[in-house]
Amino acid sequence: MSIGRTSNGSVLLAKRLMREKRDITENAPEGVVFSDSSDSLMRWNVDIVGASGTLYENERYTLRFKFSAAYPFEAPEVVFVGEEVPVHPHVYSNGHICLSILGDQWSPVLSVSSVCVSILSMLSSCKEKKKPPDDSAYMRYAPSTPRNTTWHFHDDDV
């Protein structure tokens, strides 16, 4: 595994991530498929499949999770990667996701599985496939990581 055991904190981090990796591999929620074959604990790919009866039915997307040494006290960086990202009012063309639990509403009790379920729920509740209204402007000035974006969560009716 590509995480060192230099301190008690990194041992606890490794245990937490190994437990979550095992859980999502063996007991993934419906519509969630652990797709990463790498040996890294700090960076994973997870596929999600749109739920039946939704705008995203059977559409498959890949999420990249990057964990910092502060996980689970800090949210992982989660972005859509791959050839296509979903067209959704809270998903930018570069894969950045505007979702409160990935920002100021993060809690250490959340997990990779719960993040995936939240993103699937966000997709499932969407009434119209459209890009965020500020997608063009965001794409011009977007930081390389969504962690450097100050999100304003004000739209719960998508």
Rank of each mutant, 00 (worst) to 15 (best):
M1W: 03
S2E: 14
S2A: 13
I3K: 09
I3W: 14
G4N: 12
T6M: 09
N8L: 13
V11P: 02
L12A: 14
L13P: 00
L13C: 05
A14Y: 00
A14K: 10
L17V: 10
K21C: 12
E26H: 04
E26V: 09
G31V: 11
G31M: 05
D36A: 03
S38H: 03
D39E: 14
D47V: 03
V49G: 06
G50F: 10
G53Y: 11
E57R: 09
N58D: 14
R60M: 12
Y61K: 06
T62N: 04
F67Q: 12
F67I: 10
F67P: 12
S68C: 00
S68V: 00
A69C: 01
A75F: 08
A75W: 02
E77M: 12
V78S: 03
F80W: 00
G82H: 03
E83C: 06
P86H: 06
H88M: 01
H88P: 10
P89N: 01
N94C: 01
G95S: 08
H96V: 07
H96Q: 05
C98M: 02
L99A: 07
L102Y: 00
S107F: 05
P108Y: 11
V109L: 11
L110C: 12
S111G: 09
V112S: 11
S113R: 08
V115D: 09
V117E: 14
M122G: 09
S124Q: 05
C126L: 06
C126R: 00
K127I: 07
E128F: 08
K130T: 07
K130R: 15
P132R: 06
M139K: 03
R140G: 01
Y141L: 14
A142M: 04
T145Q: 08
W151N: 02
D156M: 04
V158K: 07
